[in-house]
Amino acid sequence: MAETRNAAVEENIVLDVRNLKQYFKSGYGRNKVVVKAVDDVSFKIPRGQTFGLVGESGCGKTTTGRTIIRLYKATGGEVYFQGKLISGKLSKEDKRFVHQGIQMIFQDPISSLNPRMTIKEIIGEGLLINKLVKNEDELYARCLEMIKMVGLSEDHLSRYPHEFSGGQRQRIGIARVLASNPSLVIADEPISALDVSIQAQVLNLLNDLKRELGLTILFIAHNLSVVKYFSDYIGVMYQGKLVEQGTAAEIYANPVHPYTKALLSAIPSPDPYSEKWRSYITYDPSVHDYSVEKPSMHYLGGTHSVYLSEPEMERYVK
């Protein structure tokens, strides 16, 4: 009985990242430096759920996303997409399976759209490459459907990216992503380049699409209030490690790792009175000496787990 249930859960996992590592090397000989951008990161995303990845800039959250979609060759670890291994060497068909099944929304809507292509060409490119449409009419119909889904109109199809505002361009980026009907969308800071009043528009759009299409999303951002609003599960990254993960409620109600605590204490809130009284927690990595005590992932119940050393765990249990 338990086994069958486990199998059902496994089947519902869209993305399963196991011990993913991405190291960057630079220099030669004595000057050789290895940067561990992503170091031993594991998480799973069930179908229709959103996993929010947060952390400061340079902590490796974007690299994680880009390694999953094979923009970088992973140094170690495995990535399973719908039960299929997609890291390492792949056949041509498997590569197509990945490119069609996983799509990415980029941070900067200006540089991620080709300025010399019309909107129809931008949206239709993925359809043509993946041979998802048979003829020109079908292609047009699909592009039209997509542009309407993101709240733009038919006459926008023949225009060029420079004719649109930032928010509209990000909508086009979203339409392009959804055109090939992906199972997983990686959204890399989709709203941080947009103006405040436009951010809410794009967030609402993403939220509607998520509900209507049952999208599975890996949401990468540094704004914690946005991540909490948008995600079911949250992973907190620090210097290439996933230091804490769990459901949004678990993380926000009961942060365990000192870095998570510092991150949560730093969120500015629009309330002048509580702001004047607030105290920030600063994270000092030297509170734990990991050269002596080796840290590891500890399971806290539910889906909540944290990356700490044994003595620290003992302190937490008390």
């Binding site: 505002s165 928010g167 405040v196 009043s197 436009i198 951010q199 809410a200 528009q201 967030l203 609402n204 939220n207 509900r211 209030s225 946005v226 909490k228 609003y229 948008f230 995600s231 079911d232 949004a248 926000y252 969120i267 809130s269 629009p270």
Partner: peptide
Amino acid sequence: WSLMASMPDMDLESGEALVALQGT
């Protein structure tokens, strides 16, 4: 009002629609 309501805060329920400013 619009400016304040358009930013999500920690009290907002996940999935609840934000009050977005329309247009530019």
